[in-house]
Design a protein around this nucleic acid. Structure first.
Lengths: 123, 123
DNA sequence: AATATATGTTAGCACAGGCTAACAAGATTG
DNA sequence: CAATCTTGTTAGCCTGTGCTAACATATATT
């Protein structure tokens, strides 16, 4: 089973929420992503099957090693792509929205160059 | 009926092929996109229903005003995004592949800034 | 003319990932 | 304690978009 764009979004959202509260539950993810509990339930089930997350007896979601690595890498892309768009003059809203779509499809190679661009052009 | 990423790809491919041969048929599109004739047939049917293309008695595909406008705008994004990635040091293959994915999702605003970046940094 | 090949179409399947509806079980409150 | 609310889950529907199989034509080849 391969992870898709949608799965990546769920992982990223969980990571983001974990920065705000200690226990992230399915309902938090659903609210944050503005999808139904049903959609979230199914998505999380798949992430469990893929061994990317673990849900404890209280419903708190935590990452496996691999899950965390994927979540962080997507989140990193999000942050850096947003930064990049801001650097070239895009407002934060648009920058973040575009980053959110591009983070799932850009190649590692191009992303590396985008990061270099940021280093050379920020400060 | 709204145009999706897939529909945009078919339009872009048709435009690209029209630059090479006078009469572009379904089979050419299928071969170029490496999808089956069946998939192409259905996709073209939809594009016809959306009044974006017209297919003459010989099977030659032409654009409506609106279809051409969409095809050209996607193609323009493709070219400019490829240029942009090449400018920041990506090889042409990767640049074009990434452009192909990003062209469908980037906002007009960000795209404008990318174009400005190209103007300021090429030559 | 008869067979073969190329092209287009339709039907029907698969999968992803949204949704609603219905229900179970726990938490909260009158 | 009984009623209600919250949360999670499952079943089943819909849409997009790929695929194969089967078939209709049209064009070529023998």
């Amino acid at each position: 089973m391969k992870i898709h764009e949608s799965g990546e979004m769920y992982l990223e959202t969980i990571l983001l929420l974990q920065k705000q509260v200690k226990c992230v539950r399915a309902i938090d993810v659903a609210n944050s992503m503005e999808v139904t509990r049903a959609s979230t339930s199914r998505a999380l089930k798949q992430l469990k099957e893929m061994k990317l997350i673990v849900v404890d007896e209280n419903g708190c979601i935590t990452f496996s090693k691999e899950g965390e690595q994927i979540a962080k890498s997507i989140y990193d892309r999000h942050v850096k792509l947003t930064q990049f768009f801001e650097l070239i003059g895009i407002d934060s809203e648009t920058a973040s929205a575009d980053a959110c779509k591009i983070e799932h499809v850009i190649s590692d190679r191009s992303f590396e160059k985008i990061k270099q661009f940021i280093v050379l052009n920020s400060k």
